[in-house]
Simulated scan of single mutants.
Amino acid sequence: MKAPALEQVLVIAAPATGGDPGTSYCLTYTGSGSGEQREAVLLSDTPAYRCTDILVSPDGLDTDVWQSGVPVCQTPARLAAFAFAPDTEWSGGEGLYSCLVRNHGA
């Protein structure tokens, strides 16, 4: 069985929430990146119409969307690995993983 594709996201701007599990998160892509890594802005508690992808927990429930290990995402969610630019408050830590779902409406 083939392992699921792993999307790589470099977060160039992030909110100052510090990963609070009670916060909803989404991504807006900048259109830039290098290699297979896409650059994105991480948004928190933002109206869905401003988001390209929404971060969801692996189990699809309202639990923490951030994982320190590689989760198994439920379809239609996609697996993503996150790195944080040095000038974000989230930089310097271990890499994080989450599941992404494409936003198809407001």
Score class of each variant (00 low, 15 high):
25 Y>L: 08
25 Y>Q: 08
8 Q>N: 11
65 V>C: 01
41 V>H: 10
81 A>D: 03
23 T>R: 11
55 L>V: 07
15 P>W: 04
30 T>R: 04
77 A>D: 06
12 I>F: 04
78 R>F: 00
106 A>F: 04
7 E>L: 14
62 D>P: 00
25 Y>H: 08
3 A>L: 14
73 C>H: 04
27 L>R: 07
32 S>Y: 09
91 S>R: 09
3 A>Y: 05
84 F>P: 05
102 R>P: 10
65 V>N: 01
66 W>K: 02
95 G>R: 14
8 Q>G: 00
101 V>T: 14
18 G>R: 13
18 G>D: 10
78 R>M: 11
86 P>R: 11
99 C>F: 06
40 A>I: 10
35 G>M: 11
64 D>P: 02
41 V>S: 06
16 A>W: 02
104 H>A: 12
42 L>V: 06
26 C>D: 02
66 W>E: 02
66 W>L: 07
57 S>W: 00
34 S>P: 00
2 K>P: 15
54 I>A: 09
15 P>T: 11
1 M>F: 12
93 G>H: 05
70 V>H: 00
14 A>F: 05
23 T>P: 00
32 S>E: 14
44 S>W: 01
58 P>S: 15
4 P>R: 10
105 G>F: 07
30 T>P: 01
13 A>G: 04
31 G>Q: 03
61 L>T: 14
61 L>Y: 07
7 E>S: 12
72 V>P: 00
56 V>S: 02
53 D>S: 09
58 P>F: 04
18 G>H: 11
43 L>N: 12
34 S>H: 11
61 L>I: 01
35 G>S: 13
52 T>K: 11
79 L>G: 06
13 A>Y: 07
93 G>T: 10
16 A>R: 08
12 I>T: 15
42 L>N: 04
97 Y>E: 02
55 L>K: 07
104 H>Q: 13
76 P>V: 10
92 G>L: 04
21 P>C: 09
37 Q>G: 00
49 Y>K: 12
3 A>P: 07
